[in-house]
Amino acid sequence: MDELVVVKDLKKWFTVRAGLFTRRKARYIRAVDGVSFSIRRGEIFCLAGESGCGKTTTGRSLLRLEEPTSGEVTFDGVNVFALDRTGLKTFRRQAQIIFQDPYESLDSRMAVFDSVAEGLVVNKIGAGRSERIKLVSEALEEVGLTPTEEFIFRYPHELSGGQRQRVAIAAAMILRPKFIVADEPVSMLDMSTRGSIVKLLMDLQKTMQLTFLFITHDLPLMKYISDRIAIMYLGKIVEMGPSEELIDNPYHPYSQALISAVPSPDPDESMREVKIKGDISLSLEATPGCRFASRCPYASEKCQETEPELLEIRKNRYLACHKMKRH
């Protein structure tokens, strides 16, 4: 299996404005601070972590929706950050994004047809309205909004949350992309409809040989559907590996805490004790050492001084930790 997306040492720092009249140096929030991973063709890869860990910024930067501070992303062998306007347009046809909130991602004044056909218009696909109606109808059929005549000229407020997300998926699929970034695509939906959207995405993935990057905090769902998972903490990947294996047996103290904190719906399984204290705290200063050290129950002096690298400690299992190396 070859690699469709390769991310090398990606960084995205946001400048925090120093006061207007002060001479203080500009400071940075290191939202993404040296992230490397690759996504294989046909794979469902997941970036997981708590809010503020940089997972969304990573996804947006690799699509160049956000200009990165440094690093390299290649998509199908092409350097994404070197693309000019035309190149970028071709790239965007192949790489689409689905957002969390279908209430916000669709324009409330645009009918379903206009939202879905927007990509066709931008890319000058389909001659005239009748052909575009045909293409949009096909896309709606693929996402299960049938009979399509009933949906094509409706407005977002007339649709349920699940239906809106289907429209957003149709809009992403109509350009026949190879790669989809899905940022929390089901977290706004009700439990009972969530599964149907997940199934739709999985079916599309199979029939169209799509590659997926899921960005989510929903670890139970990722255990069920993703192939590989990378856990992020404060702008870094701390652990990466096959999803089921990693979630059943995490190595990094942070992954361990994160996974044990997820409640189980089975009341006969007792809650696990959460060993770590405190809350994620964004630091504006670059500190040496491991970013998790201040909360880590196993931290030693070395952890405060040098930052651990993400290393393959076992086949397919990557870990950035000084302490848990010998597994």
């Binding site: 439990m191 009972s192 599964g195 139970p220």
Partner: peptide
Amino acid sequence: MESVPNIRSKKRPIGFIGGA
């Protein structure tokens, strides 16, 4: 219950209820 994934159980397909 079938639509709720459990992080401590084995992988299985996720259920759902059609309609709204």
